[in-house]
Structure formats: C-alpha cells, structure tokens
Write a protein that binds this DNA or RNA. Sequence first.
DNA 1: GCGACGATCTCA
DNA 2: GAGATCGTCGCC
Length: 212
Amino acid sequence: MTHSALSRADLAGRAEAVAPLLLGAVLESRGPQALSDPVAVRITEVEAYGSTGADPASHAHRGRTQRNAAMFGEPGHLYMYFIYGMHWCANVVCGQPDEGAAVLIRAGEVLRGVEVARLRRGGSRPDRDLARGPANLAAGLGLRGQHNDIDLFADDSPVRLLPGPRGPLSPAEVACGPRVGIRHAVDRPWRWWIVDDPTVSRHPGPRGHRPR
DNA sequence: GCGACGATCTCA
DNA sequence: GAGATCGTCGCC
C-alpha cells in the first residue's frame, strides 16, 4: 500500500490543513550532469506558513515581493528561499493562487540516492542526517534558487512530489507543536512530524521543546 | 542607498 | 554560544 497520490487540488487548502498531508509523501529530484541520479526523500517534518496578514511568521505576511512571488502562484510549485547567507530551504506552495501560503519541508528520510545526497552534503554522516533540517534537506536534494517556482506536478520537472511508499499515516503516528526558529506567532502549533522518526530535526527550541 | 537581521547548522 | 555569510526589505 502506498501513500495516496497528492494532487494539486489537495494542496489548495489552508497551509495548516495541507501541511500534515505532506507527511509520508516523497520529494524526488533529478540533478543535471554529474549528479544525475535521482534522490528521493520521504517527508517526515513540515511547517505551515499562512497567507498575507494571517500569519506574522510567514514570508507572505507583508504581501507579495520579488522574493516571495512564488508563494502567490499556483499550488504545487516550489518556493525556494535563501537564509543566513548560506542555506536554501524548500517550500511547497499551497492555498489559492494569490493567497501566499506554503509549507516548509523541514526534514525527510532519504529513500533513494543516498550516495548522491552524501556527496552533496560533504563528509561522512549517518544516513538519517542527510535530509534532517530544512537546509540539509534542500542540500541533499540539490535544491537551490534555480528551482524556485518550478511545478512539482509537471511530468518533465526536475523535482516532483510523489506518493510515499508506506501507506497512509494514522493519527497516532503524527504529532504537532510550535514552529522552529521564528519570532512571531510562536504559539501556533503549525509544525507536524512523524512520531519517533529518527530523521525528524533536532533543535534547541524554546524551553527545551523537543519532538519525541 | 544603507544596514540590520533572518523559517540554519556545526562545532566548541 | 558563536561564527559563517549574503539577499531582502524596511526605513532613512
């Protein structure tokens, strides 16, 4: 049994409704040239970011800008952003076009292309760390600014959103809690992760909050 | 035009 | 707990 395939229509809802649906689904990237083998990552942790005026922590909160324009496009596209002068992070655009909502993909399990992911990450590290944390996940998949706004549902896209291999998640397998690394709307429990999954990111978190 | 800071990570 | 490192946006 596989995770049922997500369609673009499934992503058209509110970010906080779409986010948990992405758990267990797979992001697969095909690199150009040398690192052309696909890397597939099963999503284990996500965060919802709401639309303009509705979520002070969202890049879309103050409206459309050049950077966040992809958030205001069609659901099912990627929104890539660059952070801290060195990291790229990947979001799946959701909601209605012009709404400006997205789901940050925070962590995943590398199902395929472990060798390529390890090369991209550099050094030797446990498999479970290859896509643990949003910047690590993007790095392992080889995702950067050039992938901003690409359509995850186009057959010829270098990055695609595919059904997961393990079947639907039961409610007991999913936990939620506050988002990480933000200053505003910290109380909103808009981060979801797969319980006991070793690839879910670790982080200092305010007051020692930890996924379990 | 300028400057403060950020949806991070690693290592000490 | 600091440092790496730079694009973005708000404000001067």
